[in-house]
Design a protein around this nucleic acid. Structure first.
Lengths: 242, 242
DNA sequence: GTAATAAATTGGTATTACAAGTTGCGATAA
DNA sequence: TTATCGCAACTTGTAATACCAATTTATTAC
């Protein structure tokens, strides 16, 4: 019995209550996307509060990405997009970034990405095929010494495969991974010297499977690729005793 | 050539620049978790700005979950937890919730949950086994008429399985799904009359597999369960032409 | 030393004033 | 008539001051 006696009255501040009222209106679409909010003075009158309190409520909503405020113009209901949605998630991973997270991400990739490749093979459009081809070509032409550029292109390829799955939930879920890769790269300077041809081959195989709409083949190729990549990572982690 | 002429000067407001400065200090751990910020008056002097501008910066940081502000006490660097991180993600799904999202979520579950069950079987602790057992027992004892309670318990079971995987990235990724189930339930009144025994059996099978650390068996059982559930959903969607 | 009390400190709200940017209307010129 | 310019009437952004309410700290009485 932790909370036998809950706090009496509203512990919420005035500006928080205003925030919640406007937020509810937005969630219930009473304020549709893109619509203009009344001016601050008008809202002050409507809520019967000072401009100070109202502005702080608007600042919170703006910080959370629910509204856009333009100086001299006014406030508008934001087109709440994925960027807003995952920005705080990215911040979270940014703060808790460590070796464990890297291992867990690698594990998650091994679990999910083969299935994603399978779905991509079944759902991809011609546009996706073109973009995947272009990415691999860039990778082929990439300077062998530029490890950073190579890693970025590999990352781009995997992001494109995920995009080709057409499942927005999957795309959003994987987004943090592809955003964190640059940081992982700074953490693990795993050299894939002598592996590049092998890696490249597997990417070609994945590409071909998706192009030919062969889900099972895409699954297998992706599975092998991720497993091999994880092996390289683990070897490196052991070698440098991280 | 889209951006031949980039905007001149800082389009950022003063309060946004203050916000960014403090945010950077937090991200770089110069302000460690739990530490107390200087008082508003002090910060005003340090940044040489009015209290108005400073407070709006603090409001933004507070709204984003980076700091906690206690009246009469002061501001503290928040222990930025998962709740903060995924709250905006939940808002996003809340706003774009529709039939398509439900279908994509079901697809994603079919892709991911079997693998999650496999990992759970390999990583689970005794505590997880107990909790899973308790959840199934609740489901058995649940009133057959109370469809809502049943759905909640099934949902809880799947959340617990995910938790047992021990992979925090996976847990966070799946969190939106388990949060959305109540809304899906209101969308689809899929009657599992006559299915309950079948569903229950499969849950028992998953439980036993995880208890016995049989990953492959857990994978198969979860796979069958999700497939059957999706069938029921699709039948319902067709029947009512949603 | 402890507990009650008073004082100082801190965040919350209100008010007023002005700065700075945007919008739209109308006067003016072509 | 049409295009352009400029001004006026908006809008939000920042500043300064004052006071309220909650919390913390210092003081006092026991």
């Amino acid at each position: 019995m932790d909370n036998m006696f809950e706090p009496i009255g509203e512990s919420q501040t005035l500006s928080q209550r205003i925030e919640r009222k406007i937020e509810t209106a937005i969630r219930e679409k009473r304020l549709p996307t893109g619509s203009k909010l009344p001016s601050e003075r008008e809202l002050c009158e409507m809520f019967a509060v000072s401009r100070t309190a109202l502005r702080e409520a608007l600042r919170r909503l703006s910080a959370r990405g629910l509204i856009d405020i333009k100086k001299g113009s006014g406030g508008y209901v934001s087109d709440y997009n994925i960027k807003n949605a995952i920005s705080s998630l990215l911040l979270y991973y940014d703060l808790k970034f460590d070796k464990d997270l890297i291992l867990q991400i690698n594990q998650a990739r091994a679990m999910f990405e083969p299935e994603i490749a399978r779905l991509a093979a079944e759902s991809r459009t011609d546009k996706h095929v073109k973009e995947l081809r272009a990415t691999i070509d860039d990778l082929i032409n990439c300077n062998h010494d530029d490890i950073q550029a190579e890693a970025d292109l590999v990352n781009k390829f995997h992001a494109k495969v995920t995009e080709a799955s057409g499942n927005s939930f999957v795309i959003i879920s994987m987004e943090p991974i592809f955003s964190l890769v640059p940081r992982i790269r700074n953490f693990i300077y795993a050299n894939i010297e002598g592996e590049k041809n092998n890696i490249l081959e597997k990417h070609e195989e994945i590409y071909a499977s998706i192009r030919d709409k062969d889900g099972q083949k895409a699954f297998n190729a992706m599975s092998k690729l991720i497993d091999r990549t994880n092996e390289i990572y683990l070897e490196h982690l052991h070698k440098y005793n991280l």
